[in-house]
Write a protein that binds this DNA or RNA. Structure first.
Lengths: 231, 231
DNA sequence: AAGTGGTCTAGACCACTGA
DNA sequence: CAGTGGTCTAGACCACTTG
């Protein structure tokens, strides 16, 4: 008779109560132990379910203070950011890559600051174009920290993209990511073969190995590019 | 002497091995039980740590198949999407809201399809402007399913934004979210008080209550808008 | 059929924090 | 200082998947 309950079942039951108003906004929920007794499972199962709801931003939990329904639930969304090669191939197109430039030099102050480089430190500046079926797809502008990744200086970046080399050879421990929109200037328009003034989707990323920056990259996608939560 | 280990400690130790090459790409890791014995903790602690690494897209786990280091780690990023009011106020600006239009009518086919509405079903169409210190900040174009949320028809949407009313009165159980970039046409330019052709950051969201759609909304932000992973 | 991850349980103790 | 969430442990059994 007694059904076995997974923590996901418990979470769904509690979520149903959040939705149907049994637990309304601002309410304090019963103690985990009481809910466990009511639902006929162990307290740790309730705890796991509650942790999930808290991670999703729907409840607040505090020791001694108990569990409360949030007044303004935060919307928290997770995106998978694929390798560009994988993304292109998933669309059934042929992936190609073209190195535009590769120079060792002094990065601009904003870049140096984002990567936490000394002001006198040089970095490897790489510009490249990713193509889908010979049509431009993403324009990439990257700085690489040669202190963290000295091997990169001897890699043939015309043969393999910096992105893929890094992913395969230098796993990161942490990264920052941001999205914004950018108006195409003459240079972007020329390289992406689009009219000046088109709206472009931009991804900025900095990756770190411990406290040391690995690379900072701006990827500029063609008009129409779109990124969605994974279903 | 024996330190107590949290699953986060265990995760960090395993991650260190992924970074320093002890476990290289494609390698198979020892069984959870062996790692637990080696690190001096319970198997469930290792299991929790491994689950976290798997969630982050760095390892693959299969029953009987064991745990393997991924060849192409997936980058998985989490964003907090705030209420616009909260976002504006967090920047120290005064939030205001202006209703532009409110009509019951037949949504265009793309909207009806996204919301899974019957082709003959009417929906509430709301257009509104969010302002920061009297300057336009976000332009919102929204369709609301009156089957799911009949009360919305009698709400004074000039007094409270549909967004906030929904958040406070009709929690969702699921949502889809997508980002893209859009070139400002004459209408957006006029309403946001910007030049035609500026690049705008667009957020599209559909929310659901169970299998029924609640609302579909497109939010168009002023130039310079940026969204970043939470640190 | 056997090996490995997935999860639950019961109990214990810890760590906050509000009264 | 007492109440509540946070986490660990040891053991058990389940579920998948590979050989």
């Amino acid at each position: 008779m007694k059904e076995r309950q997974s923590w996901r079942d418990v979470r769904d039951q509690i979520q149903a109560r959040l939705l149907n108003g049994t637990y309304a906004m601002g309410d304090r929920l019963p103690r985990d132990e009481d809910i466990a007794a009511e639902l006929g499972c162990a307290r740790s199962t309730v705890q796991r379910a509650m942790q999930d709801l808290a991670d999703a931003g729907r409840i607040d939990r505090r020791r001694k203070g108990g569990t409360q329904v949030k007044h303004s639930p935060v919307t928290r969304a997770t995106f998978d950011i694929p390798l560009i090669r994988a993304e292109v191939e998933a669309k059934g197109a042929r992936y190609a890559y073209r190195l535009l430039s590769r120079d060792l030099g002094l990065p601009p102050p904003t870049v140096a600051a984002s990567m936490e480089l000394p002001t006198t430190a040089q970095a490897l500046h790489v510009r490249a174009l990713h193509l889908a079926d010979t049509r431009p797809y993403v324009l990439e502008d990257r700085w690489i920290n040669p202190e963290t990744v000295p091997e990169i200086l001897s890699v043939d970046l015309a043969a393999i993209s910096a992105n893929e080399w890094l992913v395969r050879n230098r796993p990161y421990s942490r990264f920052d990511l941001a999205f914004c929109a950018l108006r195409a200037g003459p240079e972007e328009a020329d390289l992406l073969q689009i009219p000046v003034g088109e709206a472009l989707f931009v991804t900025d990323r900095t990756t770190w190995l411990g406290a040391a920056s690995i690379t900072l990259v701006r990827q500029i996608a063609v008009p129409g590019y779109r990124i969605a939560t994974r279903s």
